[in-house]
Every structure is written in C-alpha cells, then in structure tokens.
Simulated scan of single mutants.
Amino acid sequence: MEAVIRRILFLAVILFIYGGSAFASVAVDGGWLEPRLDDPDLILIDMSSDPTQYQRFHIPGAVHIPYKYLTATRRDGVSVRAGDRQLKQILGYLGITPESQIVIYDDMGGLEAGRLFWELERIGHENLALLDGGLVKWILDGKRVVARESEPRSKAYPGALGEVRANVADIEQVQAALKDGKTRLLDVRSREEYAGDRRAKRSGHIPGAGWWPWEESVRFDQGFVLREEAQLRESLAALGLEDPETPVILYCRTGHRASQSYYVLRRLGYRDVKIYDGSMAEWSRTTLPLKEGMEP
C-alpha cells in the first residue's frame, strides 16, 4: 500500500508542477529534481553518451548504464533491442522494481535516455520521467555534480517482463502501415540520409514516410531542452499529424535517434507510437522500395 501511495504522489507532483500538461507529464526539470536527490525511493539513471563522462562528473546519486547495453546485433548486422532477458538483468542491476520512481538523463537532449524510456514504457512502467536538458542544463544552471560513483541498489527484478504498451514495430507492420491509410511513418534521420544519394546502390527513405529530423526537437543553444510545445506541434501539423490519436511509426538507421523522437511524441501526448526496431539498417537489406528526394 505504501508503494502505491508513493507512486500516486510521484505522478501527482509532476502533473501539478507542470500544470497537468500532456507535454510535460513524462518530464521533470532541475528545480524538481534537486531537492529530491536524497529520496531513497528515487532511482536516477545517467545515460551520458561518452562512457567516461560519468566517471568525470555526474548528478549526485545517479547510477550509469550505457546505451549499448540496451541493444543487440543480429547475425545479419542489424541492431535491435536486446530482448527481455537482458533488459531484466539491467533492471535488476539498477535496482529497479515495478514500483520504482525513475528519472533518466543524458547529455544529448534525450538521444540516449529515450531508449530506456521506450523500453520501460513497453513493459508498463508508470513512474517514469526524463530530466529536461539533462546533464547539460543541470550544469548550466550551476547545480552540483560529483565524480564519486554511486553503487546501484541491485536486486532481482520480480516476475516476468511482458509487452504492456505495443510500441515496437517489425518490418511486416511497417509494410501494412503503408497500406492502411491511417498510420503515419516518420523518418527522423538527417536531410542527406532521407533524400538519398543517386550514386549509392540503395538509399533514400521508405516511400510515404515524412521527414521529421530528431535534432530539430532540441534547443541545443538553450541547454539541450526540448523546443516549446507549440513549435513541435506546428512541425508535426505540417506533416498531417495534428491529432495525437493518429498511429505513428518512427524509424532512423538503427532505432537510436527514433528513441529520442519516441519520447518527444509521448511527451506531446501521442498515444500510439511505435519504433521500427530494425529501421533502415534492416529495410535497406531487402528488395523493398526506397524513394530518393525530399518528397514522402
């Protein structure tokens, strides 16, 4: 009962601070986090992109997990999610239980942290947020960092993992989405990758996919926080995505950048969002069509 009460309070406080906006229901800022660093019920996870960054300095109390631990490489060279067995080991190492209150941060505007957010949403974890701006904004705000590593409070993750939120798409689902007339496909890679290179044997984007580059959602000049809600919604509306009920499938090269975009869409309140796990690394290995140029 006590754990349930803590869960309700965690979610209620986040919603209260951000005015109940769907835009921020999965986000916290440094002002919220700083006075809670000593909370024994909070698990703070550092996913800085440089493996030595955590050793140099990090937010007090944070435990580190590299992005690569959440992925695996298939025999054909395609990078995909690591699978439930490895995820359960990682959750146990970090001391995460289904009742844990989790805040994740990185130093790349959510590029790394978005992957764990995606995985935790898939198994139905509710007490979950990203630190807006991550380590960069924390430092720019003059908040304390430490070099001493924190030991995770490891424990076996109870029970089996299962898919609670259907947020993973395979290649068959992508093909079906191109025909159903409802699902929108978004390519979040660079302009050059989306447009393709006519000199390459196979390049470009999946026909019908809109271009929504992940980095355009981040204010790199303002501490790596996300852009204002209105700007993000305007960019999505230009792609025909005004309605947050519209099903969306995201892809990039390996699902890495798509994880950040997944977080952004979920923060904006889009309900049915999936990542094409194999992404272009898989699609380009097939004979399925690709389109060059900037038209979907």
Rank of each mutant, 00 (worst) to 15 (best):
G181H: 09
E119I: 00
R189P: 00
G204C: 02
P158M: 06
E192D: 15
S154F: 14
Q173M: 12
G196M: 13
R144T: 15
K182Y: 04
V188S: 10
V168A: 03
M108C: 13
D180N: 12
L135Q: 11
G159K: 10
D197G: 04
L135G: 10
E126R: 13
A169W: 00
E126D: 10
E99G: 08
G114I: 04
A200W: 01
A169I: 01
R148A: 15
E193F: 11
R202V: 06
I206Y: 09
R189H: 06
R122G: 08
W138E: 05
G142K: 09
W212M: 02
D106P: 02
L128Y: 11
Y105S: 09
G114T: 05
E121Y: 07
Q101C: 01
D197E: 01
Y194T: 03
E172R: 07
E99Y: 15
G124I: 05
K201E: 15
E172S: 07
R189Y: 00
R144F: 12
A129D: 03
L186T: 01
L131D: 11
E151M: 14
K201P: 09
H125W: 12
R165H: 15
S190C: 10
M108S: 15
G196R: 09
Y157N: 06
I206P: 00
L116Y: 06
A200H: 02
K143Q: 15
I104G: 03
K155F: 00
V164D: 04
A113D: 03
D170H: 00
A160N: 12
I104K: 04
E149C: 01
V164R: 07
I171D: 02
V174M: 01
K137G: 01
V146W: 01
E151K: 13
G196E: 13
G181F: 09
F117Q: 08
D141W: 08
E121G: 02
K155A: 13
P158G: 02
K179W: 05
S154Y: 13
A113V: 06
R115K: 09
R199S: 08
E163Q: 10
G210D: 08
K143A: 09
Y157E: 03
K201S: 15
L161K: 09
E119F: 11
A209P: 06
Y105Q: 07
A169E: 00
E192G: 07
I206N: 03
A147T: 12
R153E: 05
G114N: 11
W118V: 03
E163F: 06
L116C: 03
W211Q: 04
A169R: 02
L131C: 09
A156N: 07
T183K: 00
W212C: 05
R115T: 04
H125Y: 10
A147S: 15
R202D: 05
K182G: 10
R122D: 09
K155Q: 11
T183R: 03
D141S: 08
E172N: 05
Y157K: 04
P152E: 04
D180S: 12
L128Q: 11
R199A: 09
L116A: 02
F117S: 04
Q175W: 05
A156F: 13
P207K: 01
Q175D: 07
K179A: 11
Q173A: 06
E192T: 06
L135P: 10
R122N: 13
E151D: 12
K155C: 07
G142Y: 12
S154W: 15
L116R: 01
M108T: 14
V103T: 04
D107W: 10
E99V: 06
R165I: 13
I123W: 05
S100T: 02
